[in-house]
Nucleic acid binder design. Structure first.
Length: 445
DNA sequence: ATTGCCGGGAG
DNA sequence: CTCCCGGCAAT
């Protein structure tokens, strides 16, 4: 992210694992405590490789009591993988089906071939589908919540949703992470490969900051003095933010601009809910191939619900429509060409994957934040309002680093990748691309 | 040194 | 296609 530093090894506490319950089924939970019998407290980062280390698992289900396990009994990142695991009938598993994570129940597990007969609960149809899956293809943990699920129950992402700008933050996220690319090749620079999760993580802090701001200044004050002060702001966050905007017109930032400093002011303005709009707003459907646009929020949501998503079902989270449209302000003459570009494109991986990343990496980020307890500086998040914020001079376009040397190479994103998340020892958990030394699709942009 | 991943090769 | 890996760039 913006720290520029790699995170130290994450503490194992908080790691999501699956462990065997009394009934022979695996249940999800997280490491709640680590007990190391060895009288050597020298290793304080919880990665104590004593064979007798016991891990207290707190299960997600309130019905189950905490229990201690050895590492060999636990399944999850940092522990054993699925190989060799024997699943009983009725075991709840998770797998990716049609690009979404769905849950399923094991009907049968062939220990010889490690093939599972599972019955999945498709989110899109009432009927349960029986499916044959390899053991490796299923997970015991709901590793990456699908967006709708993430929205349904209490999720960390919720925390980022403060009352004021409720849902706006997520509504801005659905936008394609990077412009003009259907392939993995990306333009020379964009903050779009920033970890969205991390950005969310920053949201908390940022929102806190905003609250403070609003206490000390009038709501509409354009910009508090010293807002752009780097000392109070993580440098990475700001610098990454301004690299996000690419445009065909590399107009340099105004040299004398008072907020020439990395365009933070712009970000802040964008974060701020704008009550009075100067320009009219259209809502554009971002469903692939769809160009529908309308000028009311309800209309676009109705369009998406009716044309693309289908009738809402019981249990569906509301607001799912928000992932499929973008809100665009139409400037008086016409929006700059560059913006329309951004609006038109969709990410290479349609929403589900993308949203999963969002939640997934958010968790990762939060996890490490919580555990490290490091007083990280307040990061100003990069928002992704494509909404054209009036005067383009505020747009800091980093066309500067446009394509100097390596045109094809994607800049390194600070997302955690499969390798980092699962480690070499759990290579089987990596996404395929990571396994092939290709650009990560799971935690990638 | 490590990590991410492009480019290219093998099957 | 899928899968693998050399090698380079970024960190």
């Amino acid at each position: 992210m913006s720290t520029g530093k790699r995170l130290a090894k994450r503490s194992i506490i908080g790691t999501r694992v699956a462990a065997l319950g009394d009934d022979g089924l695996y249940y999800s939970g997280m490491i709640h405590a680590v007990k190391t019998p060895a009288p050597f407290p020298e290793n304080n980062n919880c990665i104590n490789l004593t064979p007798n280390t016991r891990y207290t698992v707190r299960f997600d289900s309130v019905m189950m009591k905490n229990r201690e396990y050895r590492d060999a009994e636990l399944i999850g990142p940092g522990f054993r993988g699925m190989t060799g695991v024997r699943l009983k009938e009725g075991q709840r598993v998770f797998l990716t089906y049609n690009g979404r994570e769905v849950h399923a129940d094991v009907k049968h597990h062939d220990y010889n071939t490690d093939e599972l007969l599972v019955q999945i609960y498709s989110p899109t149809s009432e009927v349960r589908i029986e499916l044959k899956k390899k053991l490796d293809d299923v997970r015991l943990l709901e590793s990456r919540k699908s967006a709708r699920l993430a929205d349904v129950d209490t999720d960390f992402a919720r925390l980022a949703d403060m009352a004021g700008d409720r849902r706006r933050s997520s509504a801005t996220i659905e936008v394609p992470p990077s412009p003009v690319q259907s392939s993995r090749k990306r333009g020379p620079s964009s903050s779009c490969d920033q970890g969205y999760g991390e950005r969310d993580e920053q949201m908390n802090e940022c929102n806190a900051a905003l609250v403070l701001m609003s206490l000390s200044c009038s709501p509409n004050s354009p910009r508090p003095s010293g807002w752009g002060d780097r000392s109070s702001v993580s440098p990475g966050a700001s610098s990454s933010s301004d690299s996000s905007w690419r445009s065909g017109t590399p107009s340099p930032p105004p040299a004398s601009s008072s907020f020439s400093d990395e365009g933070i002011a712009m970000d802040y303005e964008e974060i701020h809910p704008r009550k009075k709009r100067i320009n009219s707003v259209v809502f554009v459907c971002t469903w692939r191939g769809c160009t529908y646009s309308t000028d009311t929020c309800t209309a676009i949501e109705a369009h998406i619900r009716n044309t693309h998503l289908g009738p809402k079902k019981e249990g569906d989270s509301d607001h799912e429509e928000e992932f499929y449209y973008t809100e665009r302000e139409v400037a008086a003459p016409a929006p700059p060409p560059t913006l329309s570009h951004r609006d038109m494109c969709r990410p290479p991986h349609e929403d589900p994957e993308y949203q999963r990343q969002l939640v997934g990496s958010f968790r990762q980020g939060l996890l490490s934040t919580l555990q490290q307890g490091t007083g990280r500086s307040v990061n100003i998040p990069v928002t992704h309002h494509w909404v054209n914020t009036h005067s383009p001079k505020h747009m800091r376009l980093s066309a500067a680093n446009g394509s100097p040397s390596s045109p094809g190479r994607r800049p390194r994103s600070d997302n955690k990748k499969c390798r980092k998340v699962y480690g070499m020892d759990q290579r089987d958990l990596w996404c395929t691309q990571c396994k092939w030394k290709k650009a990560c699709t799971r935690f990638g942009d």
